[in-house]
Structures are given as structure tokens and as C-alpha cells.
Design a protein around this nucleic acid. Structure first.
Length: 753
RNA sequence: GGACCCAUAGCUCAGUUGGUUAGAGCGUUACAUUGACAUUGUAAAGGUCAGUGGUUCGAGUCCACUUGGGUCCACCA
């Protein structure tokens, strides 16, 4: 240790050197010789092609635990990885395509897939460097990518097993379809926004009814009233004739409690093909499902002159035609209601009945509720239990197919001879786009030409299929849908640990704790619990820690669209990773938002400097001088009953350190990061520096027989504090440790208990 | 419509199972200064813990209601 360095601590220079030192010594690998209980955490995988944002820096909680456990001597494994983020990534890629005047429709499926893979490859690799900058002691030798062969293998095996266990089915169901994105979304992926739309009062035979969607009238298959509505009793069960835009039509009048007699005129047109509630009503009354909107959001052949018009154009034309025919009674222009939009682009959702792959979730959810109820899985903070139960107990079947190329393709095959109604969309050899049913197309094109240029395949709900990884025969085409991202990331604890046969899996499953933000409790955490129990009988983690959402100064969520995103790396460059880490750890409670300010980070940058200078003070006062460890002489002193003020002082300090160690250990054992960090901050600055170091100056100025013990005690205090603080501020503590001339790494030192 | 959370110093927030004079950071005020550290030190000001009622020997903490703010789930043609 030399005196020649900077007075202020310089994190920019120190941090990369220290991280390299740890890596060189393979300090992140679990200590496999230890017989203590194994501990493990999986880093929630960021998108492979994205940059780190400040939310990711909250994973510092995991690093604190990992470093704490590692120092306690547990075999400790922390696995990093990245996600292919199916739809998210394809969305970004398609936006780039748009800039060069192209779209996904210009490519066959395989080419598009390869292009996106290339795009991800070009844009990945940033994450690793950024995680290292934050000081995360991840075992990089276990790094996993969601599309690694072994991951895909496990996901496909799970799908096959679930199919055999009758947990997977294919069916036509009302799904949330976004014509713009060209894919369906799960309910969780749909948002509702308030919007003002005209409410049209339209004449239907003897009735007048209110609707915001007159263009769907061609898909009406009934008219509904409330069973107790006195105005309409005489019509219930009858068929009525109406004047329409494309001729007269007949509709049955049904009675259903869903209808609110107070709304509008108390009469509802029922369109089972394009409204979730009407669909349910249709099931109750065995109504025909008559789709009139196609996958591009345009009206189909059943709408006569309106065919080919987009929903909104059609609406305007329908309205003006209704006026012309005298069928429009009045319009309420100030009607506000909620409309469903896709979460990514805020495009209007078109509810449609489409064939989809589903997971039967009820039996899985039942067990996933049980493990939380009997505390095999503990959620921190506890109040999320209730939210979790509420959701899990009302869970609906999970649609897992996405009409997205980027992802794991569903391993199902359709025989074109047995399924003549298969619709295919493909690019032929001449580069022309061809669409149609296989029964019409197969004469003109060979199966290999179709397969090669295949873009999309739509198999009717009752199609026959085979689940297989390989092509089962000559005349088969593979499903073009891919799995919902969460279907694969839901198996992350299994895939990262190489379920079922690896050493890691046997030793580290179930993992100790999962740390994530509460916004993906249902998307991800609940699904991991379901998959984990289904495949292994055990939930994949013992604790779920729901960390804070990092907001901007005003408490607003950070998002790209708002432009208030802070890049954590900029903060690291400015103030050091240790400072950022402490700012995220102290002063926040799990599940609550944390508003991060630059002043706070500056405060902890100053703290790092404080410790640095405490070390310099002790260095100057011990170098070349007699230094004796008080603790190793304690029995001797007790025997002599030595009452010297100096030795009493030493005794008091050692006592104090033991208490501090116990307190911090207990707080960390209970995942109280904020309090543990604050405790250390307070002790080091207000007690150690301001009281004891100041006090020591008097002793050291009057050099006597006890001064060596004073020096030794100061050094002990420093070393213990470095150990205790290391999980929070790993860089500055390790840097000082190295300057103390220790022949060891602080990161693997023994934790003071 | 259903549920959850929050309200503590000027600002941003901690406060574990109810237990002495309620804490931190930043900010404010006065003073100090080449000291290990100005990324500093010493001292100080600042809170009837949103309101009302209740349980208790004792409530920031537990219960009920009221007011204000946030979030989630479901969504009416």
C-alpha cells in the first residue's frame, strides 16, 4: 500500500481493474468443496438485443445476496442469460424494415427468421459488458440464451409431455387479434384506453338499438334483450325481419341477463364472431358464429359491397348508407367507452374466433396456489399474495401461439391430403405472393415450393395434426405459429440449470430466490411456478422478492416513449457503480417505487470516498509501525484485569463490531437490504470515522505501550467494515483490501458472523 | 365494477413481531479549514407520523370510517 494515490477515490480507473481481478481468479464460480447448503439465483434475462436500463440495475439486490452467501461459505451460483423476446424483438426489427420501405410480407418465414437472428446477433453482447460494469458477480460460464439448442429442446419436450398429459389443445376461441401486428395476444397483453366514439341508434325491424360498431352488423346472428324487460316480452323467442343494407334479413330475439335494460334502448345486436361478450352469449344460446372481418382487418365476402374495406372506412360507409335508407335514428356523439388495444403499438384489437394452441391452466394453477398458501414459496412483500391468489384462482386458459416468426416454432404438422382446407400464404419461385386453400393450390405448385416460400399457414380448428420435431412425411407442412415468449421463459429455471440430468440441476434446484419487478408477477413468475411444479413437483424458488420500480424524479415510470429513461452506465461513468448500487439499495422498500435523484447518488459517491480516506488514515498511521491485534491478546488482558483506558477502548470497539456484524447478518438473512445498508452507512461515517478515528488521534499522539493495540484495533475495524460493506459496494471495498496488501480476495473472504 | 397500496421534516423516502426522547439522504442556517477526506468537520433549526373514532398499561405500527394520491385485475353494446 502506497501513499502516492489520489486523495479522492477514482472509481472509473479502479472498477474495471477490480472486475478483471475477480474474473482472472474465477471468483464467481461456486465453491463446490463447501458442504454448506447450496444457494442460487437466476438473473431475469434481459432482451438479447437491448440496452440495459435502470430497472435492470435493481438486480443489484441479487448481487448483494450472492456476495453475502458466497462469503458465508455457501456454494453459490448466479446464472446470467438473455431472452429472444419473441414479439418484442420482431416488433423492433419490423420498425427497422419499415424505414427501408419493406415489411414482413416481403419475406418467406425462414428468411425472415434468419434476418431477425442476424439482427439480434449484431445488437447483442452489449448487455454482458453493462452487467459487468455494475459489478455483478455472475457465473458467466453458465450464461444461457433463450434460443440455445438445449433450451429449445427442453421447451419442445415440455410441450410434447403436456400434449400427452392432455394439457394442450387446439381450438377455435375468441382471441385478441391485432390486424396491424398480425398476431393474437393474451388478455394480459391487452390494454384498455378510454375513447370517445359516436354511438349509433339503428333501426332493426321493430327495435331501435345502440351500437358503436355498425360495420359488424353483417355478422349479427341474434338480437338480445333482458329477460325481465317488460317492453320486449312479446318478442322473446320470436324471429323478426329487418331491413338491411344488403337486403332483408331475419334474426331471432333471445333473452339474456347480460343485457343492461338501462343502457341505450335495452336491445343489443349479438355478433358472436367479433365481440367477446357476444361470443359467450352465443355459446349460451347456440348461436351461429359468422365472421365478417378477415385477418387484415378488412370486411370479407359476406358483406357484399363493403368487402375489402377496412373496419373504419366500412363504418363510415355503413353509417352514410344507413342514413340514406332511413335506418339511422340518432347519433350520440359524446359517448366515451373503453376500447381494447395491443400493449405494444396501441392498435385497436379485433376480437376474433381463431384457431389457437392453448394450455389448460386450471390444474396447473391449483398447485401453484397451494405452494404459496403453504409457504413453500414466500412472496416478499407479503401483500402480493392476495393479488397472486386472486389472479390464479380466476385464471383462464392460456393461448400460447403467436403469429410471429421470431421464436420457437410449434412442432405440429398438418397433412395436406387430410386437411384440404388448410390456408397457405407463400411466395412462389417467381417471387409472387400466393394465397389460398391447399386443395386449390396443390395442383399448381409442388409441396416443396410451397414449403420453401411459406409465410403463414392457417389450419381450421378441427384440423388433424401430428406433434413431432421432424417432418413426419412427404405431404406435411409445419405450423407457422411460434410459442408465446413466456412459454419458454416460464421454463427458465429448468433450462438454465439443464433439467433434468445435470449436476447443477440436482444441486441447485429449486433455486433460493427469484428477484424481479412486480409487473411480471403473472407473465413470468406465476408461469415459472406452474411449469416448475408440473415438471419436477417442486416450485422453482423458495422466495420471490419483488423489488422496487425505479421511477424518475417525478415518480413517473421510465419508458422510451416518455423519453425519461436513464442509462445506468452513464451514472456509473459519472459516479461509480458502488454509488449507484447504494442509491438503489438504501431508502426503498420492496414493491414500492423508488424515485432516483442525482443528489442521492452523489451522496453515496461521497461515501465511497469517505471509506477510501478512512483507509488512507489508517494506512498512514500503521505503516512501518508496531501493530498488534487486540483480539488475539484478549484472554491475556482479561486475566490481568487490565483497566487501562486504551485497552478498554479497544475492547469496546471489538464488542461494537460484533454487534454490528450480527445486526447486518440478521438483516440480510431477512432480505432487509435498505436497513442493512443504512446501518453500515451510519456506523462507518458517524461512528467509525467521526467518533472513533477522531478519538484515536489523542491516543496515537501520546505514543505509549498500548498504541500498537489501538492501531491493531483500527485496522480490525476497517477490515470488518470492508467485509460487511462488500456486498453493497464491492469495488471500493475490494480496492482497499488489495491495497492493504492482503494475499487474498475480499470477495471470497469469510463473512464476520 | 373488484382488489391492493400509499399519506411520516422544505423535498425524496426508511421505520422488522405495537415498547424509552420518531430516523436517513438531500436541502436550509451559523461556524471551522490546507487536517485521512471540501466528495470535509462541528453545531443548529425543522415532524400533534393525513383526519376522526376504537382496541391496549402503551399506537407511526393493530381495527373501523373519512379525505387525498397511486397501482393492478375485469370491462357494457
Amino acid at each position: 500500500m502506497t501513499n502516492s494515490d489520489y486523495k479522492p477515490y477514482n472509481p472509473n480507473q479502479t472498477e474495471p481493474e477490480i472486475y478483471a481481478l475477480w474474473e482472472k481468479n474465477q471468483a464467481f464460480k461456486p465453491n463446490e468443496k463447501s458442504s454448506k447448503e447450496p444457494r442460487s439465483i437466476l438473473l431475469p434475462p434481459p432482451n438479447a438485443n437491448a440496452d440495459l436500463h435502470l430497472g435492470h440495475a435493481m438486480y443489484v439486490i441479487e448481487d448483494v445476496l450472492i456476495r453475502f452467501w458466497r462469503m458465508q461459505g455457501h456454494p453459490t451460483l448466479w446464472i446470467p442469460g438473455t431472452d429472444h423476446a419473441g414479439y418484442e424483438t420482431q416488433y423492433v426489427y419490423e420498425k427497422n424494415l419499415k424505414k427501408i420501405g419493406k415489411s414482413r410480407f416481403d419475406f418467406d418465414r425462414q428468411t425472415l427468421y434468419n434476418n431477425i437472428a442476424e439482427f439480434v446477433k449484431e445488437n447483442s453482447g452489449k448487455i454482458q459488458g453493462q452487467l459487468k460494469k455494475l459489478g455483478f458477480s455472475l457465473d458467466w460460464s453458465h450464461e444461457t440464451y433463450m434460443l440455445d439448442d438445449h433450451v429449445v429442446n427442453t421447451v419442445l419436450t415440455t410441450f410434447e409431455k403436456m400434449y400427452q398429459d392432455d394439457l394442450i389443445y387446439r381450438g377455435g376461441y375468441m382471441v385478441n387479434y391485432c390486424p396491424k401486428c398480425g398476431t393474437t395476444f393474451a388478455n394480459l397483453e391487452v390494454n384498455h384506453i378510454e375513447q370517445k366514439d359516436p354511438l349509433y341508434y339503428i333501426k332493426y325491424g321493430p327495435f331501435v338499438l345502440a351500437t358503436v360498431r355498425p360495420e359488424t352488423k353483417f355478422g349479427d346472428t341474434a338480437i338480445a334483450v333482458h329477460p325481465d324487460d317488460k317492453r320486449y316480452q312479446k318478442y322473446i323467442g320470436k324471429e323478426i325481419e329487418c331491413d338491411g343494407l344488403i337486403g332483408k334479413f331475419k334474426l331471432k330475439v333471445i333473452a339474456d341477463k347480460y343485457v343492461d335494460p338501462k343502457f341505450g334502448t335495452g336491445v343489443v345486436k349479438v355478433t358472436p364472431a367479433h365481440d367477446p361478450n357476444d361470443y359467450e352469449m352465443g355459446k349460451r344460446h347456440q348461436l351461429e358464429v359468422k365472421p365478417v372481418i378477415d385477418l387484415n382487418g378488412k370486411l370479407n365476402e359476406l358483406t357484399g359491397p363493403y368487402q375489402g374495406l377496412s373496419v373504419f372506412t366500412a363504418r363510415q360507409k355503413v353509417v352514410s348508407d344507413l342514413i340514406e335508407k332511413g335506418l339511422l335514428i340518432k347519433v350520440n356523439e359524446n359517448y366515451t367507452h373503453n376500447i381494447a388495444v395491443c400493449y405494444k403499438g396501441n392498435h385497436p384489437i379485433e376480437p376474433m374466433v381463431l384457431p389457437n394452441w392453448f394450455v389448460k391452466t386450471k390444474p396447473l394453477a391449483k398447485k401453484a396456489v397451494a405452494v404459496v398458501k403453504n409457504e413453500k414459496v414466500k412472496i416478499i412483500p407479503k401483500r402480493f399474495n392476495k393479488i397472486y391468489f386472486q389472479w390464479m384462482e380466476n385464471i383462464l386458459d392460456w393461448p400460447i401461439s403467436r403469429q410471429v416468426v421470431w421464436g420457437i416454432r410449434i412442432p405440429a404438422w398438418y397433412n395436406i391430403d387430410k386437411n384440404p382446407d388448410l390456408q397457405v400464404l407463400f411466395i412462389n419461385r417467381k417471387g409472387e405472393s400466393v394465397a389460398g386453400k391447399v386443395r386449390d393450390i396443390c395442383g399448381k405448385y409442388t409441396i416443396s415450393e410451397i414449403e420453401k416460400g411459406l409465410q403463414k399457414l392457417i389450419a381450421p380448428a378441427n384440423s388433424k395434426f401430428i406433434i413431432s420435431r421432424q417432418k413426419p412425411g412427404e405431404n406435411y407442412l409445419q405450423e407457422t405459429d411460434s410459442f408465446d415468449t413466456w412459454f419458454s421463459s416460464g421454463q427458465w429455471p429448468l433450462t438454465t440449470l439443464k433439467y433434468p440430468d445435470s449436476k447443477e440441476f440436482k444441486k441447485y434446484y429449486p433455486t433460493t430466490l427469484l428477484d424481479t419487478m412486480w409487473d411480471i408477477l403473472f407473465f413470468w413468475v406465476a408461469r415459472m411456478i406452474m411449469f416448475g411444479i408440473y415438471l419436477t413437483g417442486k416450485a422453482p424458488f423458495k422466495y420471490v422478492y419483488l423489488h422496487s420500480m425505479v421511477t424518475d424524479r417525478e415518480g413517473k415510470k421510465m419508458s422510451k416513449s416518455k423519453g425519461n429513461v436513464i442509462n445506468p452506465i452513464e451514472i456509473v461513468d459519472k459516479y461509480g457503480a458502488d454509488a449507484l448500487r447504494m442509491s438503489l439499495l438504501v431508502g426503498c422498500a420492496p414493491g414500492n417505487p423508488i424515485a432516483l435523484s442525482e443528489e442521492k447518488i452523489k451522496g453515496y459517491r461521497n461515501f465511497a470516498n469517505k471509506i477510501w480516506n478512512i483507509a488512507r488514515y489508517i494506512e498512514i498511521n500503521t505503516q512501518g509501525k508496531d501493530v498488534k491485534c487486540f483480539e488475539s491478546h484478549m484472554p491475556e488482558f482479561t486475566l490481568k484485569n487490565n483497566k487501562s483506558a486504551e485497552l478498554n477502548w479497544c475492547h469496546g470497539r471489538i464488542d461494537e463490531l460484533n454487534k454490528l456484524s450480527k445486526k447486518v447478518t440478521k438483516l440480510l438473512d431477512n432480505y432487509k437490504f435498505s436497513q442493512a445498508g443504512e446501518e453500515l452507512y451510519h456506523y462507518i461515517w458517524d461512528i467509525f470515522a467521526d467518533i472513533h478515528i477522531e478519538g484515536s488521534k489523542v491516543w496515537l499522539n501520546n505514543d505509549n505501550q498500548y498504541s500498537a493495540y489501538i492501531r491493531g484495533t483500527l485496522k480490525d475495524m476497517l477490515e470488518t467494515n470492508l467485509k460487511l460493506l462488500h456486498p453493497f459496494m464491492p469495488f471500493v471495498t475490494e480496492a482497499i483490501w488489495q491495497r492493504l496488501g492482503k494475499n487474498s480476495l475480499l470477495i471470497t473472504e469469510k463473512w464476520p458472523e
